[in-house]
C-alpha cells in the first residue's frame, strides 16, 4: 500500500477509536476530561520510557493509562473532598501533571527520546515507516496494529456496555436507582479514554486526540437524537476528517495532524449551519415562523 493510504488508515483508525468513546464524553458533559487526560498522560509515558528504556507499546499503555485514571481520580477527589468546582478541579489537575511531564522530559533529555512537541502534534507522517517486525517478517506499520487493537477494544466496550453507558450518560440518578455502579462506569470510560489517548498520541498527538474525541461527536450530536446513530455518524465524520486532513496537509505542506483537526472543525462549522433540526439556519427560520414547526408536527 502506498504511503498516503497508510497515513489515512492510521488517521481513520485513531478517529474511529476516539469517536466511539468521545460520544459518551460529550453526552456526559465531560468533554474537557478528554483534553485533561490527553495532557496528563505525559508523565506516565516518560516514566514508562525511563523504566523500560524503549518505546515498547505495552508499558507505555500501562503508564499512560494509570496516569489517565489518576487524573480522573484526582479531579473527583478535589471536587469531593476539596469542595472545588468541577472546571477548576480539572484545570488544576491536568496542568500540574503536564508541567511535571515537561520537567521530566527536560531533566532526562538524552535518556528520553521524546520531545514534548511530538507529544502535542504527533508524527503521523512517519508512521508508515515505523514497521512492526515479527522475526524478520514485516507486519506493516506498528501504529496500524496498536490503533486497530484499541479500536476493537473500544468497540467491544461500547457494544457490551451500551445499555449501562447510555443510562449513566442520560440519567445517572435513575442508573444508580436501578442498581448500576455509576462511578465504576465513569472510571471504566475514563480508562478507555486514557487508553485511546495514549494509543493515538504517538502517531497523531495529544491535540488531534482532543479534536477527534470531541469535534466529530458534537457534529453528530447536531444531526440526530438517537445514540447509536450519533456514534455511527461521529465515526463517519472522524474518518472524513482524517482523509480530508491528509489532502489539506498535502496541499499546503503542513502538519497532517493539525490539518485533520482543522477539517473536523470545518465539518462542524458546516453542520452547525445546515443541520435540519438543530442547525443555526433551522433555528433562525423556526424563530421567524414559529408556526411552521407546529404545522410540521401536526402533519
Amino acid at each position: 500500500m502506498s504511503h498516503a493510504v497508510w497515513i489515512m488508515l492510521v488517521g481513520s483508525l485513531a478517529a474511529t477509536a476516539c469517536a466511539l468513546v468521545g460520544c459518551f464524553l460529550v453526552l456526559r458533559k465531560q468533554a474537557m476530561m478528554g483534553d485533561a487526560i490527553s495532557h496528563s498522560v505525559l508523565p506516565g509515558i516518560v516514566l514508562a520510557f525511563l523504566i523500560t528504556e524503549s518505546r515498547a507499546p505495552i508499558p507505555m499503555l500501562i503508564g499512560a493509562g494509570s496516569f489517565g485514571l489518576l487524573t480522573a481520580f484526582l479531579t473527583g477527589a478535589l471536587e469531593r473532598y476539596g469542595r472545588l468546582q468541577p472546571d477548576a478541579s480539572i484545570g488544576v489537575t491536568f496542568t500540574w501533571l503536564f508541567a511535571v511531564g515537561v520537567i521530566m522530559v527536560s531533566a532526562f533529555t538524552g535518556q528520553v527520546d521524546l520531545d514534548a512537541e511530538c507529544v502535542l502534534y504527533g508524527e503521523i507522517a512517519a508512521s508508515p515507516w515505523d514497521i512492526w517486525l515479527v522475526g524478520d517478517r514485516s507486519m506493516g506499520p506498528r501504529a496500524v496494529w496498536i490503533l486497530g487493537a484499541i479500536t476493537i477494544a473500544n468497540l467491544a466496550f461500547v457494544t457490551f456496555g451500551f445499555k449501562h453507558l447510555k443510562l449513566c450518560s442520560f440519567d445517572p440518578a435513575l442508573a444508580s436507582a436501578v442498581g448500576m455502579n455509576v462511578s465504576l462506569w465513569h472510571y471504566l470510560l475514563m480508562g478507555f479514554v486514557s487508553l485511546t489517548t495514549v494509543g493515538a498520541f504517538e502517531s497523531v498527538g495529544a491535540i488531534l486526540v482532543v479534536a477527534m474525541l470531541i469535534v466529530p461527536a458534537n457534529t453528530a450530536y447536531l444531526l440526530t437524537d438517537r445514540l447509536w446513530r450519533m456514534i455511527v455518524l461521529s465515526v463517519v465524520f472522524g474518518v472524513a476528517s482524517a482523509i480530508g486532513g491528509y489532502w489539506l496537509a498535502a496541499t499546503i505542506d503542513g502538519s497532517i495532524a493539525g490539518a485533520m483537526a482543522v477539517m473536523s472543525g470545518a465539518y462542524f462549522l458546516i453542520v452547525m449551519f445546515i443541520s435540519p433540526k438543530h442547525g443555526v439556519i433551522a433555528g433562525y427560520i423556526a424563530r421567524r415562523h414559529p408556526f411552521a414547526a407546529a404545522d410540521a408536527v401536526v402533519e
Binding site: 460529550v26 458533559k29 465531560q30 468533554a31 474537557m32 478528554g34 483534553d35 472546571d87 502535542l120 502534534y121 491535540i207 488531534l208 482532543v210 479534536a211 474525541l213 470531541i214 469535534v215 458534537n218 450530536y221 489539506l248 496537509a249 499546503i252 503542513g254 502538519s255 495532524a257 493539525g258 490539518a259 485533520m260 483537526a261 482543522v262 473536523s264 472543525g265 462542524f268
Partner: peptide, 20 residues
C-alpha cells in the same frame, strides 16, 4: 465544555498547521 474543547483543539490544530 464541548464548545471549549472544540475551539481549543481546532484552533490549536490550525496553529500547528500554520506553524509547520
Amino acid at each position: 465544555e464541548s464548545a471549549l474543547g472544540m475551539v481549543l483543539s481546532v484552533f490549536f490544530g490550525a496553529g500547528i498547521l500554520m506553524l509547520t
